[in-house]
């Protein structure tokens, strides 16, 4: 069953169109990420689902009920803000209990449920502290506990990890995911970090300029993006533009030929792309594969990249253990299968 249904939602700020007829369904228990650069409309969409903004057009349904006109406080959502937005004058306990107090829940039940929520985020020992006395990670957990203690129909997270430093962020990713699984909460997670989106989500929505570019599993988004924008945003990509020959070969302007990973209509002008780890560098033969010049090896510690000059572009290729090391300036061939982007959509 669809837990959240967004139907043709638009949002206009004066003469700026922040969202353009966005339609999206979220399944019950699903963890869905909305990924995009700042200003793409992802936070606006989340705020519209929460009721913190009203859509200019379209409808929002939560748990089978149309909530488009409902104010925030009637929507039964949990919301986690980017800066946590904890109330500085209230203790951790009171931050979490506020929602229950407002619902006139009995004192005994408030106590049980708040303790339970705090135990879930491992903060039961700090219930009497003020937010200012907590670390960033702890504040983040209070914000999570505050959102889940009400057993909301959906959990909405607005870049909740971006205020944390890198190590803490990775720990919190794991915790957030296991919390979501334990509670079976339908969650929408807004982020601009593609790794975060890919590693946490059941499905990823890539947004750009107020429209959804693609919706799919992390694997689909990464391996078979439909547009050049998605391909470039979710990972490193090298693009080839050319004309399809014989259904599965892309002829580039410089005469080189790239085999395609999926067939495309012969004669179409399309764009295709490869990821750095899909390419294998080889000594040139007369196979017609794109030829480049080896420039250098960049060492990162856990891995290395080759830098290869291809015409007037410099591209990265993942170095694998056991790969041959080339001399700087040596001619190389790029052995790879490129993935065609949606035919026609990316005409040259």
């Amino acid at each position: 069953m669809q837990q959240i249904r967004i139907a043709g939602v638009s949002k206009r700020f004066d003469d700026y169109l922040a969202l353009d007829r966005v339609t999206l369904d979220v399944e019950g228990g699903e963890f869905l990420s909305i990924l995009g650069p700042s200003g793409c409309g992802k936070s606006t969409l989340l705020r519209i689902i929460a009721g913190l903004e009203m859509p200019s057009d379209g409808d929002v349904h939560i748990a089978g009920k149309r909530v488009t006109g409902d104010p925030v406080w009637k929507r039964e959502i949990g919301f986690v803000f980017q800066n946590f937005a904890l109330w500085p004058h209230l203790s951790v306990f009171r931050n979490v209990s506020m929602g229950l107090e407002l619902r006139k829940v009995s004192k005994a039940e408030i106590d049980t449920r708040v303790r339970e929520a705090l135990r879930l985020v491992q903060l039961d020992a700090l219930a009497n502290r003020l937010p200012a006395q907590l670390s960033g990670g702890q504040q983040q957990r209070v914000a999570l506990a505050r959102a889940v203690v009400l057993k909301p129909k959906v959990l909405l997270l607005d870049e909740p990890l971006s205020a944390l430093d890198k190590n803490l962020r990775q720990d919190m990713q794991v915790e957030l995911k296991s919390l979501q699984r334990t509670l079976g909460l339908t969650s929408i997670f807004v982020t601009h970090d593609q790794e975060e989106a890919l590693s946490l989500s059941d499905r990823v929505v890539v947004m750009n300029k107020g429209v959804i570019e693609q919706v799919g599993t992390p694997q689909e988004i990464y391996s078979t993006p439909r547009t050049e924008y998605v391909a470039g945003f979710v990972g490193e990509a090298c693009f080839f533009h050319g004309i399809v020959e014989g259904g599965n070969v892309l002829r580039l302007a410089d005469g080189a030929a790239v085999p395609l990973a999926a067939p495309a209509p012969t004669g179409a002008r399309i764009a295709a792309f490869v990821r750095p780890e899909w390419i294998k560098l080889e000594t040139p033969s007369n196979g017609g594969a794109p030829a480049g010049v080896f420039e250098r090896l960049i060492y990162f510690g856990q891995s290395s990249d080759y830098l290869v000059r291809l015409g007037d572009r410099q591209i990265r290729v993942k170095h694998r253990d056991g790969d041959r090391v080339f001399a700087n300036g040596e001619a190389v061939a790029l052995n790879c299968k490129a993935w065609p982007l949606a035919a026609g959509a990316q005409a040259l």
Binding site: F79, F81, M98
Partner: peptide
């Protein structure tokens, strides 16, 4: 502003948010 919005998301009406969050602060 998000401190007030946070109150709305846990079910406070604007008046409750004013009394419980904004005015105390």
């Amino acid at each position: 502003q998000r401190l007030e919005e946070a109150a709305l998301t846990v079910g406070a009406t604007p008046r409750q948010a004013l009394l419980r969050v904004t005015l105390p602060l």
